[in-house]
Design a protein around this nucleic acid. Sequence first.
DNA 1: GACTAAGCGAGACGGTACGTCGCGTCTTAAA
DNA 2: TTTAAGACGCGACGTACCGTCTCGCTTAGTC
Lengths: 199, 199, 199, 199
Amino acid sequence: MPASDSLPTTRADRRARSEQAILEATRAILAEGGVPGLTIEGVAARSGVAKTTIYRRWRDKDELALAAVWNDLASGLQAPRDVGDTRAELLAFIEPLVTILRSTLMSSVIRGLTSEIAQDRDLSHAYREQFIEPRLAQLALVIRRGVERGDLRPDTNVRLAHEFLVGPVFYRLLFSGQPLDEGLAPRVTDAVLRAFAAQ
Amino acid sequence: MPASDSLPTTRADRRARSEQAILEATRAILAEGGVPGLTIEGVAARSGVAKTTIYRRWRDKDELALAAVWNDLASGLQAPRDVGDTRAELLAFIEPLVTILRSTLMSSVIRGLTSEIAQDRDLSHAYREQFIEPRLAQLALVIRRGVERGDLRPDTNVRLAHEFLVGPVFYRLLFSGQPLDEGLAPRVTDAVLRAFAAQ
Amino acid sequence: MPASDSLPTTRADRRARSEQAILEATRAILAEGGVPGLTIEGVAARSGVAKTTIYRRWRDKDELALAAVWNDLASGLQAPRDVGDTRAELLAFIEPLVTILRSTLMSSVIRGLTSEIAQDRDLSHAYREQFIEPRLAQLALVIRRGVERGDLRPDTNVRLAHEFLVGPVFYRLLFSGQPLDEGLAPRVTDAVLRAFAAQ
Amino acid sequence: MPASDSLPTTRADRRARSEQAILEATRAILAEGGVPGLTIEGVAARSGVAKTTIYRRWRDKDELALAAVWNDLASGLQAPRDVGDTRAELLAFIEPLVTILRSTLMSSVIRGLTSEIAQDRDLSHAYREQFIEPRLAQLALVIRRGVERGDLRPDTNVRLAHEFLVGPVFYRLLFSGQPLDEGLAPRVTDAVLRAFAAQ
DNA sequence: GACTAAGCGAGACGGTACGTCGCGTCTTAAA
DNA sequence: TTTAAGACGCGACGTACCGTCTCGCTTAGTC
């Protein structure tokens, strides 16, 4: 801070620094009390930032919470590479999601935000645009390769397949309370393979 | 002496009458503004009942909202009868759920309560106990008959099958925004039949 | 008649017994939390009596509190006997009041009731009628004897003298927080004697 | 920083403006219904201020009520000037108190607050510190001059004299209901003069 | 090198709803 | 008839956060 010329502190720098402070504080609070424990006032106090600074960047606490976990969420879900094995690729598609949702932070954030995502027009739109659509695109490639290999029916519906892959995962997370254990991804994958097998 | 059909006003009567007034007001408010628009104060004002009377019966607005739709939810989901046709019975299991969730009231309530169900220990416990477990029991009968008929694999896992049936439905409701159209139930049913087909 | 040898329980008995239970509970609660801690609901719970039974006898918690300490208050303040010494008789008039108000129970009750006595028409009327007037009558006798003995001026105003005797005591109790110590009564007495001395 | 003298709506300004609105509303409500009629919610509604803003400044309605009349109370009770006449100065000490307490507003406020002042540690402390002690200091000067003039005994106890002057006034206000008429101050003054006369 | 304006911290404010307390009324059922 | 039991409408409480709105300070980039 005093370091005269060490940190040139452009406006963008200041912006970035307070943004980082906010997101870190948000993650810390989320880890402690989940979405219900998250308040803008709390984030402001913890990050040493003014409430207005937070409101300048995010509309409400839901957007903030999503932003706080966005990187981890997005970066953990990469497109499966072509490994010549449809089952392996489907597994590579769904396994990371299960793993991420097993983490306390991410699971509690998703649990807490689901109602908002399901209700808020803007938030749901953003969620689909930025999260679901890219995932569908990833899955479409896997399925196309599976069809070409003769593993999957040519008319396999990508959306439906996606719903079968992730539906059970979210259902466990949100409703049934069944564990997101290591057997889940393979079992889901196998069921999908059978459901959409060629012939 | 019971004055035939006047108003005998026993304690239970008063209790029941204000309970009805509360639940009706709750449904009306839910229909208008969904769970976010539901406030205890609003219900009290609309039902002509004191706030305390509401708090005497339900811990918070989530329990109240669930109670308000409970009857419709539970009564709409009956065990499929044995009709000698596994596909028809699976359809009879999942179709009513899709239909119910298509209604504005029920879908907005479920959307709004999901986060609470997923986060609140008591509420999630109650939800599983009173809602999921009975449904699993219903499905178990259908699957047993399917196995006996040679339609389903003997080792068909009821929980997994249930997750495959309802997971896509809730995923549409909460995240993808895809419509709960008439084709959904049959498509889900067929996929499950293939995924767990005998042989 | 049927009650064989147990308790004949006439209606008056029941009435008296619950009244005693109420007053005892009231005193206990007053001793613990003073007038602010006194609630009708608390008294009902503690005495095992229904709220309605309390309301049948006393209009509100102020009347109840006053009733609960009434006996002690009234019985402690007897008319000074003629002992041939005006100073001794004035002392015998004011000393017991100071002593009573030194007790934790009585002082906290008076502190807590003062505003009600000062504001409520009925309560203030009852207080004057049942408490102040008898005391004035007691003091009038003392003063008349003092005048006859030549100790006090013949035109000594009883009300004014009374105000001088008790005013400082209540002022300490309510406002100044000065102790109601043993020197207070004599000092007040002497001042009054001088203020109204003959000649 | 100096802000000259225009209308720059500084933070202090906003603070002062809402404070004035609150105190005015408080006085109006007190005038109408006394302390029992005073509610924070009522003050908020009448002053157009949020409840929280009131709670930010005063702990409860008693502090608020006291604050609302504080100026009138304090400004009305000035130290008697040296006029070379002890009786006149004692009268100048006690007369304004009687006059103030004759006003409907002030008398009803004091009646309503007395129990709180007598019971609440903080409030009673504040009352003594800010109100009684300054008055004792005023009276001490009067008495010192009276002693120097040979009107009062050299060992005249200021606290006791104060209690004799104000005790009767408050006793009338709170308990006896006797009027605070114009004769009261002179009679109290004369009695005190006799009680503490030199020789 | 001085000036402008962006961005920020600070924090007061109006507001909504919360969940709680105790009031005093009322009705029923038991003694 | 009196009581206990207890549900109820009601008013107010004090609290938690919300999102908005200045206000000055600090500083970066422009003239």
